[in-house]
Simulated assay, not measured.
Amino acid sequence: MNETAVGPVAPPFESIGSIAVLRGGGLGDLLFAMPAIHALAATYPQARITLLGTPLHAELLAGRPGPVDEVAVLPFAEGVRPGGSGDTAADAQQVQDFLARMREREFDLAVQVHGGGRFSNPFLLELGAKHTVGTRTEDAAELERTIPYHYYQHEVLRALEVAGMAGATTTALSPRIEVTEHDRDEARTALEALARSLPD
C-alpha cells in the first residue's frame, strides 16, 4: 500500500492508545470520513478507535471488521446531532451525561471531522482528550491543531487533511466499508426475491 499525503502531515503524537472521532450525520457523512479513519488506524495501530456517531452508524458498523472498534451514539446537541425530545433541560442533561461518560475514557486523541467547529469544537474539548485536532472556522474554538474549514471542499480530502494534522498519512482515497458474509447472504436473498417477482 502506497502511503502519501493530501495536505501537510504534522508529527504523530506519542503514546496514543485511544482515539475518539466525531462525525455525526448520515451514512454518506460516515463514508466520507472513512479514509481518514483508516489513515488514523494505520498510523496508530495500537489505538482503539471510538466513533462518536449516530444510530445509523452504530447499526452499519456493528460486528463489522474495520478501523472502528465501537460507536458511541451522540446525544441530541445543537450543531452536533440535530433533533431532540423537545424537553430542553432533559436534552441538556443527556449531553452532560454523555460527555461525563466519554471523559471517563480518558481519550489520548480526539479528532473532529464534523464541520467548521462552531458547535463541534467546544463539544470535542469537553471530552478532555490529551490532544485535539480538527477543522475550524474563524468563529470556532481553537483545538490543539486545526486546519481552516472551507465549505466548498471535497469532504474526503478535508477529513484526510485533518488526519494529516494528527500525523496520519493517507492510505486510501476511496471510502470503503468491509463487506461481511451476512451482507452477501442478505444481498442473495434480496436478489432471489426480486427474480421471483419478475414476470416469466
Rank of each mutant, 00 (worst) to 15 (best):
L127F: 13
P75M: 05
Y44R: 04
Q112T: 08
R105W: 07
M1Y: 12
V6K: 11
L52I: 12
I147F: 04
I177C: 12
D87I: 00
A110D: 06
T88N: 11
D108Y: 03
G164K: 10
T169P: 01
Y149K: 11
D97M: 06
V73L: 08
G83L: 05
A163S: 04
V113K: 00
P148A: 15
G66Q: 10
D185W: 14
T189V: 10
P11C: 00
S85R: 07
F13C: 01
L22Q: 06
R64K: 11
F32H: 15
R64G: 05
P75F: 00
A72S: 15
K130A: 13
A187E: 06
S15K: 13
R136H: 12
V9F: 09
R188T: 14
R48H: 10
T137P: 02
L125T: 01
L99P: 03
A77R: 05
D87M: 03
R196L: 09
A62R: 12
D97F: 00
A92M: 07
T180Q: 04
V156R: 04
A190K: 13
P11S: 09
D183S: 09
Y44V: 06
L194P: 02
G53R: 05
S85P: 00
L22C: 07
L143H: 03
V73D: 01
R188W: 13
M102Q: 15
P12L: 01
P148G: 14
A195S: 10
A47C: 05
L127V: 12
T43D: 04
V156I: 15
H154P: 01
P82I: 14
V21K: 08
S197H: 11
Q96H: 06
H131A: 13
P122W: 07
R145Q: 04
E161W: 01
P35W: 08
E142H: 11
Q94Y: 01
P11K: 04
L40M: 12
V80M: 07
G25Y: 09
Y152V: 13
L99S: 12
E126H: 14
P67N: 08
V162I: 07
F76E: 09
A72H: 03
F76M: 00
E59A: 15
A159V: 11
S120R: 03
S18I: 11
A140F: 04
G134E: 11
E178K: 03
A62G: 06
E192D: 14
G115V: 08
Q96Y: 05
N121E: 10
I19W: 00
D87A: 08
L99C: 11
A39G: 11
G25I: 08
L127C: 13
S85V: 04
L40E: 05
Y151N: 14
F76I: 00
R23K: 15
R103C: 06
R105I: 06
V73T: 12
V111E: 02
T180P: 00
Y152M: 15
G167M: 01
H182I: 04
R196W: 03
M34I: 03
I177K: 00
E142D: 12
R48N: 05
